[in-house]
């Protein structure tokens, strides 16, 4: 079972990788902002699979932090990256 979960984790990570390439290329800032969401969800899935496959329960805590941090970063992106630059007319 562990092997299968590891393969699944690799697969999820690979799809995240491809998605990341698309997102980072933009062109809008809003596209790039999605990176945190993508890596948040995908990273959490990878971590949960890893936690079970390699018996590292702490990886679930890392996933928990990732969930919180994805929000933090997204808010920072939106708040600092987009809204302010509009106010300043960039």
């Amino acid at each position: 079972m562990a092997d299968f979960l590891l393969v699944a984790a690799s697969f999820v990570l690979a799809t995240v990788a491809v998605g990341l390439v698309r997102i980072l290329r933009g062109p809008d800032k809003a596209d790039r902002i999605m990176a945190a969401q993508l890596l948040g969800t995908g990273g959490i899935a990878t971590l949960l699979l890893l936690a079970q496959a390699t018996s590292v329960p702490a990886a679930v805590d890392v996933a928990l932090i990732l969930a919180l941090l994805a929000v933090f970063i997204s808010v920072a992106f939106v708040k600092k990256g987009v809204i302010r630059s509009q106010m300043e007319g960039a």
Partner: peptide, 21 residues
């Protein structure tokens, strides 16, 4: 944005290296 993504991925590496802290 790339750097943030980079950091999140490095966190995964740390899990792989058995360093969850």
């Amino acid at each position: 944005v790339g750097f943030v993504a980079f950091g999140l991925l490095v966190a995964l590496i740390w899990v792989r290296l058995a360093a969850p802290d």
